[in-house]
Design a protein around this nucleic acid. Structure first.
Lengths: 275, 275
DNA sequence: TGGCAGCGATACCCGGCCGGTATGGATAGC
DNA sequence: GCTATCCATACCGGCCGGGTATCGCTGCCA
């Protein structure tokens, strides 16, 4: 199995459309069809069921999609790490807007280490960056249980409670503490984008960053439940009320398990040292 | 980066010899040289330093070797899992001769599970199978701290002390317990084969399995320190004396972190259930 | 129900790349 | 200094990957 075949298959499996996939890959559709057919023939398994109107994944196709994504990520990571071994630097991924204080402390403390290398920050839109470790970053700050950490080595850094963010005028804003039941079925919950940037249909406003969310909350059009970190820089007119039974959020530092980088080890040691 | 290029590079990096690597790959040497040169050119990094008499890895080459091995393993695993998704089975790797009782209990208990699939056993020579999870097996029984578990998800099953295996006539055989210092510099320690099946030069007999080792011990030509498991089936004339300060050995069940298989999850649950 | 639009498969051609043989040039050992 | 070894280069042929043109099928809709 060549990575070219995997790239092609993953594209088709994600688009479920040979034409769009070929377009995305920058090739014509016929060679793409042929390559997928060859791959299926060689594996001896059907990966896709296709009528001329609909393309769907088989069970085998679903397996290969998941494995293929991981492999392509690993290939990209290997390429980047190989290329940058002589001018070592470290790419740290973090959710834009989250963990601001922790991030600053971490960068300062690491920079003071002997042998520290340059740290490139990769700030990502919330909820869109779980696969970043597949190649583009060496280390990431994740938030359990929101972000999946399967396949990663992880050290916890800090655990915090979650707060409901409400407009000061909201009926629940005066409460000392809330329970999930109080907010779970409020009509003002919002929809975050899917990893591909689109929004699932449904009720609730579409939001794509914290600023926008806070604005909606100020207008009384939304409420949200989120960890303590975002309280710094909360807008006027908003209040944060602790939600007693919301799951605790743990900020963790995560890295690919086969990381052999001295820099990654140093950064993790520094991060766990002052947590 | 295509997997073909990675296969070629890994072969050269392991052999440190273009001719032998080409031989192993079943191609001629010139296309191999050319492919490696192209790969280096594309990455913009030298992977190997070569004179006409010696080939050595650069730092970048060492990184790519490690990453490449992992990637090739993942590709092999993806291929096997995709092909067998319709007739589900599970490949369990275990060290030949070790963990016999635990293994039997595990297989029985799993077979009694509802929804159990066929389990194929992959018995491996001791000390030669750490990379098996790179494609050939779904799950493995490993022994920490001997086997590296980096990059794997792991659940501990049981922890045992280690015993010195001595002929009954050995001066230390009568002791209640020993310390590492007592056995560390005995001249009768043995040499296990390297992963490639060869033996490093040095003192001590070459052994490649437990039967052979026990025979050597019976003859007074060797001693060994190993976990309790091997005591079952110990030959007549051998005694096992606990070594107080030898590192504890933990048998763990391990699987690749991105395993999405129901069968693997079941097996792990069963294994941890009765440990 | 028949025409039409959309989409994947097939047919066919071309160019580049992979792999082969032959050979050159450098180095270490005798 | 000769020679054996080993990697690089030169060159060639066949295969394969990618392109265009077209076919056949399937929903949709008038």
């Amino acid at each position: 199995m060549e990575t070219r075949e995997l790239r092609y298959f993953v594209a088709v499996a994600e688009e479920l459309h040979f034409g769009r996939a070929a377009d995305r890959l920058g090739i014509a559709q016929p060679p793409l069809s042929r390559t997928i057919a060859q791959l299926e023939h060689r594996l001896g398994v059907a990966l896709l069921t296709r009528t001329s109107r609909r393309v769907a994944l088989t069970d085998a196709g679903a397996v290969l999609l998941a494995e293929g994504r991981a492999i392509l990520g690993a290939v990209a990571a290997a390429e980047r790490r190989t290329k940058t071994v002589d001018r070592p630097s470290l790419v740290l991924a973090a959710k834009a807007g989250g963990s601001g204080e922790l991030l600053a402390k971490l960068l300062d403390a690491y920079a003071a280490e002997p042998g520290a290398v340059a740290v490139d920050l990769l700030l990502c839109k919330a909820h869109t960056w779980q696969p970043l470790l597949d190649g583009r970053a060496d280390v990431a700050l994740l938030h359990e249980p929101f972000d999946s950490t399967v396949g990663l080595d992880v050290e916890p850094l800090q655990t915090e409670c979650q707060f409901a963010i409400l407009p000061a005028s909201h009926p629940l804003a005066g409460a000392d503490r809330l329970r999930m039941a109080d907010v779970a079925d409020l009509p003002e919950l919002v929809r975050w984008p899917e990893p591909d940037g689109s929004y699932l249909p449904g009720p609730g406003a579409e939001v794509h960053d914290l600023t926008q969310l806070f604005q909606l909350i100020s207008l009384g059009r939304a409420v949200a439940v989120m960890p303590e970190v975002v309280r710094t820089g909360l807008l006027e007119g908003l209040v944060a009320v602790p939600v007693a039974d919301a799951p605790k959020v743990t900020t963790v530092i995560a890295w690919p398990p086969h990381s052999r980088s001295r820099a990654v080890a140093d950064l993790v040691r520094v991060a766990t040292g002052f947590s």
